[in-house]
Simulated scan of single mutants.
Amino acid sequence: MSIAEERIERLHELAREAATEDEYDRAREYVRLARRLAERNRCGLPKSFQRSTCDACDVYLRPGRNARVRVHRGRVVVRCLECGATERYPFE
């Protein structure tokens, strides 16, 4: 595991903790930093990180607080309540 990947994991943990404390602006900043770091070092973000953040507004998603999660026709549908963006993932 490279240094960049370790840093991305740490930023994911910090974003989760900040969102748990209802500090969404701080969590959003951690998400942005992690995405920039992944782009610069040409390493992908972990799937768990991608699916717990909104691509449109970079907020850390917490189901029931700022995200709505539904299962519909074999897909998981996640809607961000901050910006209204919708993501669909195959049901695994």
Rank of each mutant, 00 (worst) to 15 (best):
G64S: 13
V31D: 10
V59A: 13
L33A: 01
T20N: 08
L45Q: 00
E5F: 01
H12S: 02
T53I: 12
G74R: 14
H12I: 01
L81F: 05
G74A: 08
A38H: 05
R26T: 10
Y30A: 05
F91S: 15
S52T: 12
T20R: 09
K47Q: 15
I3R: 03
E29I: 06
F49W: 01
E21R: 13
P46M: 11
M1E: 02
R79G: 04
E13T: 04
A15L: 04
C43R: 10
P63E: 08
A67N: 13
R40H: 07
N66R: 03
L61K: 04
R75E: 14
C83F: 01
E5T: 00
I8C: 00
D58K: 08
D25W: 10
Y89G: 07
V78T: 14
N66I: 06
T86E: 10
H72P: 01
C83S: 10
R70N: 11
A19I: 07
R26C: 04
C83G: 12
C80R: 03
A19D: 04
S52A: 13
T53E: 14
E21V: 05
D25K: 13
R88F: 13
N41I: 08
S48P: 01
C54R: 12
V59G: 08
A56L: 12
I3L: 04
A67D: 08
V59Q: 15
A34R: 04
A85P: 02
T86W: 02
R68G: 11
D55T: 08
R40N: 12
A56F: 07
Q50F: 09
E9Y: 06
K47W: 09
D22S: 11
R36A: 09
G84N: 07
L33F: 03
A38T: 15
P90L: 07
R32F: 12
N66D: 09
R16M: 03
C80H: 09
Y30V: 03
R70S: 10
E82P: 05
Y60F: 12
A15E: 00
F49C: 02
C57T: 10
R79K: 10
D22F: 03
E6N: 06
P90V: 03
D22R: 10
M1R: 08
N41Q: 15
L61E: 05
L33C: 00
I8R: 02
A15T: 02
E92Q: 10
A18I: 02
